[in-house]
Computed example of a mutant assay.
Amino acid sequence: MTPADAELFQQQMGRPPRGVIGVAYRCDHGVPAVVQTAPRLPDGTPFPTMYYLCCKTLNSAVGRMESSGLMARMTQRLANDADLAAGYRRAHESYLATRNALGDLGIDVTAGGMPDRVKCLHVLIAHSLAVGRGVNPLGDEAVDALGDYFAGEAACARLD
């Protein structure tokens, strides 16, 4: 993460970055939209959320999706679709392996509710954007549900 990235992060989040290892996803304009964090913050506090969505416009769009009831519908689908549940469990295992390679927290908790429920679309979207399509099926679906947000990605580049 460059000093310029850190400044953009602070503009977007209203606070300086903590425990950031690097930028995991940039919008088409080069603005950091997802950062990767260490498993522990500099003070030693465990921080299991490895991929952190840091674009305020994207965070707002995802917040609106969360308030629509999408998480409950996704969680219900996990209970009724064995293939989807297996793919989501693999996403959890992949996330855990990557985080443990950086520093093992000694817990099997990942983020976003994985592997059994959906409790945070911000985390699932950040995961999918950071690692690419095909790893987290519900993260990919949530990215797709953002629709026009990614058409030109103008929202990420504006730091009004």
Rank of each mutant, 00 (worst) to 15 (best):
G63W: 05
A155Y: 12
A38Y: 06
N136S: 15
L129Y: 06
D144Y: 11
Y88V: 08
G139Y: 03
A142T: 13
H122Y: 08
D160K: 07
T45E: 11
T45Y: 11
N80L: 15
V62S: 05
L58V: 07
V143T: 09
S68P: 05
P137I: 12
C27V: 04
A85T: 07
M13E: 15
Q11H: 10
T98E: 10
A4F: 07
V123G: 03
V131T: 15
A82P: 03
H92E: 01
N100P: 01
A155M: 09
G106A: 04
G44P: 07
T37G: 00
A4P: 01
E153A: 14
G44E: 10
G106E: 06
H127D: 02
A6C: 12
C156V: 05
A154P: 02
V35D: 01
C54L: 02
E66Q: 14
R90S: 10
N59A: 13
R77H: 05
I21T: 13
Q36Y: 00
A4D: 15
A142E: 06
A38I: 03
L129K: 09
V118N: 02
A79S: 10
V23D: 04
A6I: 10
T57D: 09
R73M: 02
D108K: 09
A151T: 13
Y52Q: 02
A38G: 12
D5Y: 13
A155C: 12
M71K: 12
L53Q: 03
N80V: 11
Q36K: 12
Y149S: 02
Y25E: 09
V20N: 06
A61M: 02
P48D: 06
A155I: 01
T37I: 00
V23F: 08
P17E: 06
V131D: 02
C54R: 01
S67G: 08
L129P: 04
I125G: 06
G132T: 10
N136H: 14
P3A: 15
R26P: 09
A142R: 06
R158D: 08
R133Y: 08
R18F: 08
A157V: 11
T98P: 00
L53W: 03
V135A: 06
G44R: 13
